[in-house]
Design a protein around this nucleic acid. Structure first.
Lengths: 195, 195, 195, 195
DNA sequence: TATGAATGAGCATTCATTCAT
DNA sequence: CATGAATGAATGCTCATTCAT
């Protein structure tokens, strides 16, 4: 049932993801959904949890397997893009919810996903790299946000370009952020002159 | 009236931006909106045009004023982030529309805004820089997408952190993409080893 | 303007014959219609009058030109069918109004057109024919109603069969009602046995 | 619910037969109608089917019970008028739908009811009578149309004259079409002279 | 004379939810 | 455990009408 909700969200969009449509896809009655989930909000929350846990289970170990900060960053990007490319539907669903769902007061409640809390591990990773002397001196939060934005954009990119070479895209992204983060001598004048 | 539509979209979200809510904010009747705009779709289209033109008028000249590719890229980022930080509401509205509106068949029709066509000038800018020997050898499209994603994320970031130091954020972003794009010697081994 | 109302009614139907559509066809503003006609009801009334007078001006003399009752009846049918076939649009408009317009209380107010009052001349014609011994002994009202129904159906018939041979159709109709009304000996037993 | 739709159509007319009005008469909510009927069009279709089937069930056997063509024609008229006089409301509803409903392109889609297809059995009946030598030589289609028009007009007639003597009216109609169709000698000169 | 602006009422339809079974 | 029935609220939209100009 959660699976059908995901499919509906991904293929029809948030606005069309009514209980009726989800129920139709799941070939159950609308009432059944309300039986298992106290409200639509609850259903969406479960969708988020399900998708999020699935991603974490795949990505977490991939990062942990690496030891150096730069290797971890590469693994972070690679694992995310890879997972996204293999779970496009779920990611689209997540995006639909994250961009539309609001709390009663009106503001994006699931900012927690793409937002600050979810960003913390990445920020920590970057700071560790800086302390270890692997990364140059940047604002870890800004870089983290940029990386997350690049990663989160992957699903849309793949939707629009289904035959995109994911491997090539991943490598380019990794290289890009390698250059952007790794300590080097050549570019330092730029960095300093801008400070 | 378009202004109120923008405010409603930005503060209440796409789903809550009904004609009734927009009309209420504008202190006119629902019918009046339908008098000036033949449909809701038309209203949203006008919102997009209005916001888009305003941004282009500000940003375009700022980029053109620069001559070198790397200076242009810096101007691109700076002008965008600056404009976004000063027109947060409009940008949020644009995002709400771009991410939710669908054509009759169901898929993102306004991808044109954040999507491919809008990307072309940036891609060209990057390629010019590569041909001029200013930029290293990267996939211009991947880098362009990443830059756009970083820029487009600014509005959400500012919503969540209203007292963010925009100047600092912009400088960090510019530096990040300087490192990511400019030709240097130090990091070349990374790039090559990954190829 | 009345002409455009007629066209709109005939081609788009009563439900679609809004002031907006009529105004569009007439290439004037909606307000102009309300300026010349105090209400939509008034406009429709004028349409009815216009069409009705046009028909009367054509048909009246054609009937009066005949002297015998049976000749008059033939002229009645012939003139009507002929006029209808040449003014299909107007007739369709009349039908749309007659079948849909209602007074405030809810009942067909324009029954006067196809209804009783409009029937009186025909009833009188038939009775004169009976008194003159030309027509058999029938209920003039029933026959009159039947003749009117046949005539009124002509427009629909022509809409559905645009290449109908109107001359043939008219002759068949005239013959049919000749048989139905003229005094004869052969069928009298039927009539009597049914009384 | 279909019953209330019929009543509303008959008493208030097609234009006033909104879901709101029908729901009010049925003392249910508008939503309930949409629950049972996927659209208003569907509701009207069911009304047509219901009424049509009811009529067919009554009228069909009455005609089949007769053997001769002229007897069948009499039964055809008698059964129709009788049924109509006893189901005035339903017939009015049917008329409102048939005369107003339009397909997306704009023209009368339910012509099938009063229109050509529904006419075929009557045309066949008349032709059989002609081949059997019972009926004179007329255009069966024209006569059929005229008979249907007379029958279809009955409901309007009864609405306008609730205390009409239906028996008398039926007999007059039957006699009229007896004279109009049966082979006789007296009138033949008319027919021939017109040919 | 003619029209743009504005609106309240009404339309068919969709939705999440409740309730009895 | 599951669902059919039912509904109030809300949606985008059309309409005839009014009013100031």
């Amino acid at each position: 049932m959660i699976g059908c909700a995901i499919e509906t969200l991904a293929t029809e969009g948030y606005a069309q993801a009514s209980l009726a449509h989800i129920a139709q896809r799941a070939e159950v009655s609308k009432s059944s959904i309300n039986y298992y989930f106290s409200s639509k909000e609850e259903l969406l929350k479960q969708v988020v949890i399900e998708v999020y846990n699935g991603a974490a289970a795949y990505i977490g170990p991939r990062i942990s397997a690496q030891s150096g900060a730069s290797e971890r960053l590469r693994a972070y990007i690679e694992a995310h893009v890879e997972y996204i490319s293999q779970h496009l539907t779920e990611m689209m669903a997540l995006a639909e919810i994250g961009l539309n769902a609001r709390t009663a007061d009106g503001k994006p409640p699931l900012a927690s996903l793409t937002g600050e809390p979810a960003l913390d591990p990445l920020i920590r990773l970057l700071r560790v790299g800086q302390e270890a002397g692997e990364f140059r001196d940047f604002d870890a939060r800004v870089v983290a946000i940029t990386i997350r934005r690049a990663i989160d954009g992957t699903s849309r990119l793949l939707i629009g370009n289904p035959d995109l070479d994911v491997g090539h895209y991943t490598r380019e992204l990794v290289t890009l952020f390698d250059f952007a983060t790794l300590k080097g001598t050549t570019h330092d004048h730029l960095h300093l002159s801008r400070k």
